[in-house]
Each structure stands twice: as structure tokens, then as C-alpha cells.
Design a protein around this nucleic acid. Structure first.
Length: 427
RNA sequence: GGAGAGAUGGCCGAGUAGGCUGAAGGCGCUCGCCUGCUAAGCGAGUACAUGGGCUAAAACCUGUGUCGCGGGUUCGAAUCCCGCUCUCUCCGCCA
């Protein structure tokens, strides 16, 4: 959520910045409603002030044995007036809130301006895509042939975009999860969290999924609870409604969770394989930082995510997203894209964002810079560290051999009980 | 699922025959004093949000709201009434 005071003070600037994101709605309505709200508010406060002092006077008159009947009657009438105005005020506030919660974050000045992904800027590359001397298979064929991915039975159990992992497939997925968590906790200083996989709607509003993107999520029937679409939600909301101590910052959290997404509006995209699923696993990174250090922390976090791909020997590139391609809550985002032979291109495997104080304001996460000083909003960052299913797909495709078997990346061998090759009929 | 208890400031903890309590007291913390250092002692300060005034911006002044959340009664509610949420204890059930 943007700061209402900031918008009020710089309406033209906000309009310009939102235009970069192709957003034209909301601002004017906000300004008009805000004006109305404030005029009602001063009236209400004036009347309440009268009521407070008059009530006090009533008490004193009574104490002196005088009859305060007239005054009481007057205050009662004012009370009715107050109630009416309060009703109006509440209505305005709700309308304003509703608009504000649907306006996205403003882009950081370093973000390239552009409509869509064509305007993203490649920042760096690592590794060299392998040249195959045979026709490489896509992971969905490899997985089926090795009998480690079962799409038909996934569909039987749950429907399209659900997959059953079997044998070494399940084992490999688990190995990747543990490997990622170990690297981020052991080498990068993140604290491991195992959060609930269902969260309430306050959390969803806090990180920005609600109210605008309700159709992207799975809601629990009959409750105000949602299956987490990413661990960003529970991790960022851990300190919702809190004032943190300066010395506790920055906080680094990592968590493995399954992620549940309705994938509304993505019919026909990535229908084959495990790239786009209703349920997938992810190891997430979240940072809660002081405002002045958040951009430095974004760079570090992106490097932390890249690190696991380097350890796995998977070629990737880092892309700076343009204004039109960024997520709702983000001020600046780097995507990490891994090389996928089946697509013959780089495919998103991580997204690292600095949300500045956008989520902090929604979730009311603050810190006190020093004793006696006013609380300030923290900055929140999140990044995939990285998507597990897509990593498994990338390993299958990049490490496949001509006979259809798949080499296990060296870093994962210890997590696979010493197994170095995945072949058909392995248990 | 059944029965009961509770929810107050950074923390602990007063406060129910409704009024001058944004909230006693203590702890913690900050600043100052004092002691050769430390400890002890003394004094002052120490919630959050928001409207307005002043300002370059603060500080500051002033109003309003907030004692789990939402409603009600009343001239006036932390204090009375209703609903909800959460926590704790006991019983039942369950991985």
C-alpha cells in the first residue's frame, strides 16, 4: 500500500510512476475521497470535542448539586449527529482503503520502463548451455520413461496440473529441498522456518495477494483461510503488527513449503511437464530490513539464490524486470532463469523482489531505529531460493544421457544416499 | 465437541456502586546529578495512530481515537450489556 500522505503531497509524481506500470485507475478517486474524508473528520472531531468537555461539565454540575438537564439534552442531540457523521466517515474510509489496497507499488528509478517482458534487461549469465550430441528429451518424456513422474495418475487423483512423483523422482525432489535449505541456513545465514500452509486473509492482504488477486488462490471452503501460494506470505507476515528492535534487523528467513496456485488465466501455457502446476514445492527467502539497506540486501539475496544453481551446475541468467512485468507489491525485481533444453531458452526459476515499505505498511511491520525514536516501516524482500519442481525439471533435462538415464549433480549425491545416476527401475 | 478462567502501555501489574485514568505502582530503558571506578542512591522523561496550527522539515502546540475486536446502554464506559476472536485449565476425541 502506498502512503496516503505521500500521494496527497505528490499526486503528479504518483500518476507518472503508475503510468509506467500501465495503471491509470484509482488515483483520482482516491484524491477526491480523501478530501471528503478529511472534511468529515474535522467536523466529527469538533463535535466530539464538544461532547467531551460538556460531559465533564455535567459531572461537575451534578457534584455541585445543580441540575444539568438542559446541557444533557443538548449533548444527546450532538451525540446523534456524531453517530451519523461517523457512519459516513467509516464508509469513506472503507472506500479509500479499498482503492489504496488495489494500487500497486511504485517502481524504483533503476527499473527499466516498458510494457512487457520484451523490455526486461539481462544483467548477467552464468554457465554454458550444454551442447548435446544426441537429441535431448524434454523432462516430461524423461520423467515418464524413467517412471519417476506420473502425469496420468496425478490427473486421476486431482486433475490437470497435478503430478505424482515416484521412486527416484520423489527422492530427488526431497534431496533438492534439503540441499537448498542447508545452503541457505548454513552458508547464507537464513533462519529456517516451517510455517503453516494455510493462512488467514489478513496475511494475504499483508503481502498483497488480496484483495486484487483472489482468483489466483485456493480458498478453504467455509473459512477465511487460503492455501499458501508461496512461503513469502507466512514468512513476511511473521512479524505483522509488531514493532521490531533495531538490533534485530536485518532478519533472514528461509522456508520450504508447497505452493498452491489456481493458475487462473494461464490456460494453454506450459501445459506439458511440471513447469506450471497447481501444487509445487519451493524454498523461499525472505528478508526484513532497514530501509537504507534494502537494495544492498536485494543484490545479496539474488546472489544467494544464484548460488544454489551454481552448486548444481545449472546454467542461468539474471534478468531485471521492466515496470510492466513486475509483480504487484514489488519496487524492483530480478528474475533468475535457468536453461531448459526442451524450451531451448531460459525459463524463470526464481524471482527476487524488494517491496520496500509497501507490504510493511499493509501488514504494519515497523522497527524502532533507536530508543525514544518514532517507529518506521521496515522494508521487506522475498525471493525464490529456488523453485524446486523447476529445478528437478532442469536437472533431468540438463543432466540427461543418451540412454535416457540422468546423472545426479555432484552436490546432490550425498542427499541421494550416494546414488549418482537415475535409471529406469531404480526403487 | 463440553465446562470454566482470562485478554490493560516494552514487560509485570493495579483499576467494576461509570466521570478529572492514556491509564496507579513496579521493572526495563533514556537523560541529568551524585560517588575516585563499579554497584547503590536521587531527579526528570519514556504508547500508537490520526486531523489541524506552526515550520524548509522537525521539534513544538492543539484536537480526536485506541485498555483483544465489533456493536449497544448513557450527557459520559477500561469499567455495565450483547456478539466475535484468541489464550489458558479440565473432560472427551484424534495423528
Amino acid at each position: 500500500m502506498l502512503d496516503a500522505k505521500m500521494i496527497r503531497a505528490n499526486p503528479e509524481k504518483v500518476e507518472r510512476e503508475l503510468e509506467k506500470r500501465n495503471i491509470k485507475e484509482g488515483l483520482k478517486e482516491f484524491l477526491a475521497l480523501d478530501e471528503e474524508r478529511r472534511s468529515i473528520l474535522s467536523k466529527v472531531e469538533e463535535l466530539r470535542n464538544f461532547r467531551n468537555s460538556a460531559s465533564r461539565e455535567v459531572g461537575e454540575l451534578k457534584k455541585q448539586g445543580k441540575d444539568p438537564q438542559d446541557l444533557m439534552e443538548k449533548v444527546r442531540k450532538v451525540g446523534e449527529e456524531i453517530k451519523e457523521l461517523e457512519e459516513k466517515l467509516k464508509q469513506k474510509e472503507e472506500e479509500i482503503e479499498n482503492i489504496l489496497l488495489r494500487i500497486p507499488n511504485l517502481p524504483h528509478p533503476s527499473v527499466p520502463v516498458g510494457e512487457d517482458e520484451r523490455f526486461n534487461v539481462e544483467v548477467r549469465r552464468w554457465g554454458e548451455p550444454r551442447r548435446f550430441d544426441f537429441e535431448p528429451k524434454a523432462h516430461w518424456d524423461l520423467g515418464v520413461d524413467l517412471d519417476i513422474l506420473d502425469f496420468e495418475r496425478g490427473a486421476k487423483l486431482s486433475g490437470a496440473r497435478f503430478t505424482v512423483y515416484k521412486g527416484m523422482g520423489a527422492r530427488l525432489e526431497r534431496a533438492i529441498i534439503n540441499f537448498f535449505l542447508d545452503v541457505h541456513t548454513g552458508e547464507h545465514g537464513y533462519k529456517e522456518i516451517l510455517p503453516p500452509f494455510m493462512v488467514n486473509d489478513y496475511c494475504m492482504v499483508g503481502t498483497g495477494q488480496l484483495p486484487k488477486f483472489a482468483e489466483d488462490m485456493f480458498k478453504v471452503e467455509g473459512r477465511d483461510m487460503y492455501l499458501v501460494p508461496t512461503a513469502e506470505v507466512p514468512l513476511t507476515n511473521l512479524h505483522r503488527e509488531e514493532i521490531l528492535d533495531d538490533e534485530d534487523l536485518p532478519l533472514y528467513f528461509t522456508a520450504y513449503t508447497p505452493c498452491f496456485r489456481a493458475e487462473a488465466g494461464s490456460h494453454g501455457r506450459d501445459t506439458r511437464g511440471i513447469i506450471r502446476q497447481h501444487q509445487f514445492n519451493k524454498v523461499e527467502l525472505v528478508k526484513i530490513t532497514r530501509p537504507e539497506e534494502s537494495y544492498e540486501e536485494l543484490e545479496k539475496m539474488t546472489r544467494d539464490a544464484e548460488r544454489v544453481l551454481q552448486l548444481l551446475g545449472l546454467p542461468y541468467r539474471v534478468v531485471l524486470l521492466c515496470t510492466g512485468d513486475m509483480g504487484f507489491s514489488s519496487a524492483k525485481t530480478y528474475d533468475i532463469e535457468v536453461w531448459m533444453p526442451s524450451y531451448n531458452e531460459y525459463k524463470e526459476i526464481s524471482s527476487c523482489s524488494n517491496c520496500e515499505d509497501f507490504q510493511a505498511r499493509r501488514a504494519n511491520i515497523r522497527y524502532r531505529p533507536a530508543r525514544g525514536e518514532k517507529p518506521r516501516y521496515v522494508h521487506t524482500l522475498n525471493g525464490s531460493g529456488v523453485a524446486v519442481g523447476r529445478t528437478l525439471a532442469a536437472i533431468l533435462e540438463n543432466y540427461q544421457q543418451e540412454d535416457g538415464s540422468v546423472l545426479v549433480p555432484e552436490a546432490l549425491v550425498p542427499y541421494m544416499g550416494g546414488i549418482k545416476v537415475i535409471k529406469r527401475n531404480d526403487l
